[in-house]
Design a protein around this nucleic acid. Structure first.
Ligand SMILES: [Mn+2]
Ligand SMILES: [Mn+2]
Ligand SMILES: [Zn+2]
Ligand SMILES: [Zn+2]
Lengths: 132, 132
DNA sequence: ATAGTAGTTTATAATGATTCTAAAAAACTG
DNA sequence: CAGTTTTTTAGAATCATTATAAACTACTAT
């Protein structure tokens, strides 16, 4: 299993559940966006078994802390996560409630001129809301 | 009262509660960011009386729909609103959990090149996360 | 003004995403 | 294997937000 090392190197024991979550999240060409509940559904189908919500929350937050997932800043009833952890931006289709990646070349470089004393910039994210 | 007209023009009856909320939100030189609970506190102090949470939620959402308030896309436990409804961007201080306005001149123009069929761009917002 | 009606406020309940708890299970270490 | 630590899990708790429905208020038409 290719995720055992990854988990061990992160100080996380490679449990059956975590490996399964890795498969669903990372064993794919395309990156994608998901909510915890969508992840739960996906695992039910794709792996044909169930992982408790508590574990899904725990694992997703652990992966986020390790930098394997990103949380997308958006006001929705559910939190969205992104398996694409590179710096990139998003469309948010308000009607469909769906996120779409924007390549950096679709937005161009953003140069923040203002500085706040004693603070470092951690991320710069653009959210483009779409309506019909 | 200068807000009676504004409310009537928006199809909202100028009630005591709404006028009070208008005073707190709009009768000031500086725009600001707030959560519903901060607004509740502010009204308790500034007006020395209480407006029910239900009314605060209703009114804030009504004002948002009319374009007098903006919701700020951010993942926080509480929803942030902004009395500055012009197009502008934000710093978010992760430690202090505080929002700071960025002028457009601090960010520069953002030109979204990608188009989605049948969708219009409603807003373009930059969120800059700050850490120590 | 008065009566009628449509809109508003409010306390309170319901909802639902997320977090907490604590006991059982699994992974590791020697 | 025995001992220890970490993880999983069901279920409870939390808490922001929304729904409910009864009392109240603002407006409209007589
Ligand atoms: Mn979270
Ligand atoms: Mn809201
Ligand atoms: Zn993305
Ligand atoms: Zn602002």
């Amino acid at each position: 299993m290719k995720y055992i090392e990854k988990l061990r190197n992160s100080g996380l024991r490679p449990t059956k559940q975590r490996l399964q979550i890795c498969e669903v999240l990372f064993n794919t060409d395309k990156t994608f966006h998901f909510t915890i509940n969508e992840l739960e559904q996906k695992i039910k189908k794709q792996a044909n078994n169930k992982i408790s919500l508590a574990t899904l929350y725990n694992t997703v937050h652990a992966f986020e802390k390790k930098g394997y997932l990103k949380q997308i800043p958006i006001n929705s009833s559910e939190t969205y996560f992104d398996t694409n952890v590179t710096d990139h931006h998003h469309f948010y289709d308000l009607k469909e409630e769906k996120l779409i990646d924007l390549e950096n070349s679709d937005v161009g470089p953003i140069n923040i001129l203002k500085k706040i004393n004693g603070k470092k910039i951690k991320s710069v994210e653009v959210l483009v809301k779409l309506e019909d």
